[in-house]
Write a protein that binds this DNA or RNA. Sequence first.
DNA 1: ACCCAGGGTCATA
DNA 2: TATGACCATGGG
Length: 219
Amino acid sequence: MTTDFLTPFERLLERFGPQHWWPGETPFEVVVGAMLTQNTAWGNVEKAIDRLKAADTLNCRAILTLADAELADLIRPAGYFNVKTKRLKALCQFLVERGVAETPEALAGQDTLPGLRHDLLAVHGIGEETADSILLYALNLPGFVVDAYTHRIFGRLGLLAGTESYAAIKALFEAKLPADVSLYNEYHALIVRLAKDYCRPRPRCAGCPLHPICPTASI
DNA sequence: ACCCAGGGTCATA
DNA sequence: TATGACCATGGG
């Protein structure tokens, strides 16, 4: 039932308040951040984005013009810099081909959500979570973002078996929750916030806002 | 010294 | 289709 999936959200929101995601000044910055943050701490991504801004290269034209070695050096703090250099260029190439290099948010008017998601997944370096992050946080479209924490936390809550695929979990949340962009936005951000505070360096139960509804010892 | 971040690709079976 | 190696910096 719907309340099973809304109750954790309510408890998280009550504890942590609105998270104001995505942290980024423009949709283009959000898209770049979504790619750079793959398996990477956000603090390191901020450093990379700051370096791009300082070099006046946080735009498609500059990113596509820079030599690989130069771009890699600029984004070095974000890690995987050689991999992400290729991915950033593929992403910018895609935006240019769509004619939205300066306004990625305009993608939203070009196709349906499933159509856009399909095309994003075809871009080198964009997988399911990155695609959904772009759809939700840059295009303001209602695609629920699933991450490893969603998997783990809702498994602990007994709402997932723990073996479901990304697609299955996404479909479940979208079926159990109203298709509300603000709700999806806040929910995923709060899950990441919970993980930051209660899953590291060691999972702990004391003080966890989900403890009262969590049947196991820790998140 | 060790663990892991707001993942994804590619080679292999 | 499903694992496993690989990518790399920086903070706890």
